[in-house]
Amino acid sequence: MKRVPALVALIVVGASVPAVAADLGARPYGRAPAYAAPIYNWTGIYVGGHAGGAFIGDNSFNGLVLSNYDARFLGGVQAGADFQFAGSFVAGIEGQYSWLGSNQIGTIFPAGFVYSNNQRGLGSITGRIGYSWGPALFYAKGGYAYSDSRETLTFGGAPVTFTLDRNHRNGYTVGAGVEYLFTPNWSAKAEYQYYDFGRSRFIAPAALVPFGTFSNDEHTLKAGLNYRFNWASPVAARY
């Protein structure tokens, strides 16, 4: 008879276990959040440097070809600001200056005059518009160009006063390139840039007037590195 209360107690405890388990609820199983590609931020200002080569375009006086160095080393600095909008579009402005290696172009006229143009550097202030694809930005640019040049004319080794109908210091530039963010603050770029400083002719001395117009333009290839001061969180993730 003493076993009956113990048996009843055991039955009561066994019956209560499912109820307690029900109160605890089912074991939760979480699902890992879906991965989303990072959003790269191009908004901010930047400074950097570049190096590359410059190649003179068509330079001739009505068929009288100017002697020149076909390719010259260039190196310089740039600074600018970008603004990212409408998701992946980027607009910006950039100032750039490149020092040129030896670039003494010139010609000897049949009349005995010797013209030379020592171009020491190229500068530009451009706007640019681009589209970002992940960490890469594809862009086009264009604007004002400046040539740091020194033109001279001599006769028998002595300097001669001369006049051109326009100078070769002010012109325009266009280009395109790609820039890549390899860290939130560092980016590398490669670009092509064309500079055109127009055509001009001698209007004095009179002996050079019949030779017509000549042009001064440049093709450049550059690779550069920028440090970016971002105005917003450089990388965000969307889930």
Rank of each mutant, 00 (worst) to 15 (best):
Y35H: 04
V17Q: 07
V47P: 03
P33Y: 01
W231Y: 09
K222Q: 09
E191Y: 15
P135R: 11
F138C: 06
P5Q: 05
Y146W: 09
A9G: 15
A91N: 05
V90D: 08
T107P: 06
G57H: 08
F155M: 12
S16Q: 06
S116D: 08
L7W: 07
G95R: 04
G121E: 01
A34L: 11
T43Y: 03
G25P: 09
P234C: 06
G63Q: 12
P38M: 01
V114F: 00
L64G: 04
V114C: 00
R72G: 15
A207P: 14
N118Q: 02
N170P: 05
S187W: 07
N185Q: 15
D58P: 05
A34S: 12
W99H: 02
N41C: 06
Y40F: 07
A232R: 09
S60P: 04
G121R: 00
S60I: 02
S187K: 09
G76Y: 13
P18K: 01
H219C: 06
G224W: 00
N167E: 10
G143D: 04
N117Y: 01
A37E: 08
V90K: 13
K141D: 00
S149N: 10
F85A: 10
A86W: 11
A176K: 01
S215D: 13
R27D: 13
R169D: 14
G134L: 11
R150N: 04
Y139H: 08
D148R: 08
L153V: 03
Y29L: 05
Y69T: 15
G198H: 04
Y144V: 05
R199Q: 15
G76C: 12
A71V: 13
I45G: 10
D82V: 01
V20P: 04
G123K: 02
R201V: 10
T43A: 00
Q119L: 10
L153I: 07
E179W: 01
G57W: 09
S67N: 12
